[in-house]
Design a protein around this nucleic acid. Sequence first.
DNA 1: CTGTTTTCTTAATCTACATTAAGCATCCGG
DNA 2: CCGGATGCTTAATGTAGATTAAGAAAACAG
Lengths: 191, 191
Amino acid sequence: MHELLLKHIAMHISLSPDEEQYFLKAVTLRKLRKKQFLLQEGDISKGTAFVIKGLLKVYSMDRNGVEHIIQFAPPGWWAGDMKSYKTRQPATLFIDAIEDTEILWIRREDLDQLYTQIPVLERFFRILAENSVINYQERLIGTLSLPAAERYYAFCSKYPSLIEQLPQKYVASYIGVTPEFLSKMLKNKTA
Amino acid sequence: MHELLLKHIAMHISLSPDEEQYFLKAVTLRKLRKKQFLLQEGDISKGTAFVIKGLLKVYSMDRNGVEHIIQFAPPGWWAGDMKSYKTRQPATLFIDAIEDTEILWIRREDLDQLYTQIPVLERFFRILAENSVINYQERLIGTLSLPAAERYYAFCSKYPSLIEQLPQKYVASYIGVTPEFLSKMLKNKTA
DNA sequence: CTGTTTTCTTAATCTACATTAAGCATCCGG
DNA sequence: CCGGATGCTTAATGTAGATTAAGAAAACAG
């Protein structure tokens, strides 16, 4: 059940079997049905999720009620509202399940304790956060400097499996165009 | 000379005086003249800079030669190309000095060593990276969901001192519009 | 100072993408 | 297996912001 998480950790640091078991004790399995919320705007995020099955989306909603997806979380990815998690302020993000999903959940208090008990976990989450910075920087550069069609191609080559799995409108939201415009773009490309 | 850095570190973790001194030994002072590059596209980033005086900008350049500023670094801020730094691949970003600037420079090999000698530094840089993630997420949401005028107001309220210090065209680049359009926006607001 | 470079402004024109409003195709739950 | 969501497409029209091209103003170096 938890092999995916351990494998993921082992990619960046090494834990002893004892440490692994100790870490897993802090983790609980949670299941979400399609469309179920893991977090809504206004909630206070009390932990972080590691997806082992299914697919989550993390998004904000603008004042017109339009969703802007800032991240998809397929198996092997983490999802959370970092700001709410760290500051204990109400979340500005939503997280929900695009399809039935299973996650491993770590509460903040538990992770904070683990940091002192297994200090190398600091390194692990440092590396995760640094990789995340790189990703958001690249995405920001894309939205500032590339036309929509190229953002779409970039998405396809970065996440080829998601393209097949996802309703087109979510891809549109992620790359920052309306579903209508993406539809038109794809038609013209083929013609 | 290095008080700003120590103060900055002490905001997030606490080091013993010995550790502080040891850390500072890895750091070297460098000066940049206005317009001087700290990093150019294609270089391999060998370290990270902490600004103590002056002002840097971190930006990418698109195929039309237009700069897209992804970060300003005034005193108390870090600047670098995280991707090049971590992967040792050629940088895709530029960093240069908007005005004469002094930085404290840490080489990657030295910081990697320091992580094992002063493990709590892992925590420090984890927290930095996490805060950075929060910032980029918020900025991404802004570019996806807010019109240019509101991105400008958001910038003003987040970085009031930079507004006065910066040539307007750099603010335009940061919020993602042309200098011409920002000029027009500001005129219409007043009228 | 003085000429050159850099920055800011103005205005006309253009375009990528949004909006609105249909209609059609699917899918899914009861 | 049927009715209502949900998702995709098409097309007409609208608009935020880009582009181009000036010239004015400010900063800056020699």
